[in-house]
Design a binder for these strands. Structure first.
Ligand SMILES: [Zn+2]
Ligand SMILES: [Zn+2]
Ligand SMILES: [Zn+2]
Ligand SMILES: [Zn+2]
Lengths: 132, 132
DNA sequence: TTATAAATGTTATATTATTACATACTGTTA
DNA sequence: TAACAGTATGTAATAATATAACATTTATAA
């Protein structure tokens, strides 16, 4: 069960925006969109983003410097994330596949290093874009 | 077999620097280090980096905005990359594990999307840091 | 040689993210 | 309630990362 987090005012404004958006959002696009709600500075956005990432409500798509709402309420709070990214339309979706997450969470290599976290990004063409 | 690429002057300067370096290097740190060799502008660095990434001689560590020389001469030219990152000392190494790469290269989910590329970053504490 | 692609040089600018410092709010416990 | 700790906010300035635009040069190959 996931801990219930009471979002603060700014966190809520920013989470709601990202959650409503179709795809990943970039920080300065978020900033632009929340200025009418009184959030004026980049730092206000980045602070809320940091917190939202930390508690697993959103994830950062590292290869795109963009943020997406978690589409998988049962995922291990930002510790194990996998995404599918269309290189044509930039559509992103979170992959929720228990076999994959089990495989990766248990993965260990010859170095003997134990991993507590991973992020995986797959790239390709989505169905729509492939059929064009 | 990997195609032999003849690196241009700037590409060679920058590749050699990254290859010699212990860990991943950031673009502006590269710039600083090659200024004595006549490379003066960020764009010169980024162009070389783009090319080197494209041909698989280096990889970008997305979560760190940094670049590392490919440690795996037989890897599928930047199409399938996996890294282990220590969150304490920031040591990064490229994971070369045929089972893992086979598993991920063949992975497909319910969306029916076929992936041509992936990047995986594992995080944890390396042996040294864990024993501290 | 002529054409084409690839690489370079240079200036300016766009985009992404953090530092530093002051203030306010929220929940806990003495 | 008062004192405290932890979290969140506001604001300005700046750092760090990356690209646009344009002119020129070098390499490759038909
Ligand atoms: Zn998630
Ligand atoms: Zn698409
Ligand atoms: Zn490699
Ligand atoms: Zn370490």
């Amino acid at each position: 069960m996931q801990k219930e987090h009471n979002l603060s005012k700014n966190q809520k404004i920013i989470f709601d925006l990202i959650d409503k958006s179709r795809g990943p959002m970039k920080a300065y696009s978020i900033l632009f969109n929340v200025q009418k709600k009184g959030i004026k500075a980049p730092l206000q956005v980045y602070r809320a983003l940091d917190k939202l990432v930390e508690i697993g409500k959103i994830h950062k798509i590292e290869s795109r410097n963009a943020f997406i709402a978690c589409q998988n309420s049962s995922c291990q709070v930002s510790k194990a994330t996998a995404f599918s990214i269309c290189e044509s339309c930039e559509n992103v979706s979170e992959i929720s596949n228990s076999k994959l997450s089990r495989y990766l969470s248990n993965f260990s290599d010859s170095s003997g290093m134990k991993y507590s976290k991973y992020n995986l990004e797959f790239f390709g063409l989505c169905k729509k874009c492939k059929s064009k």
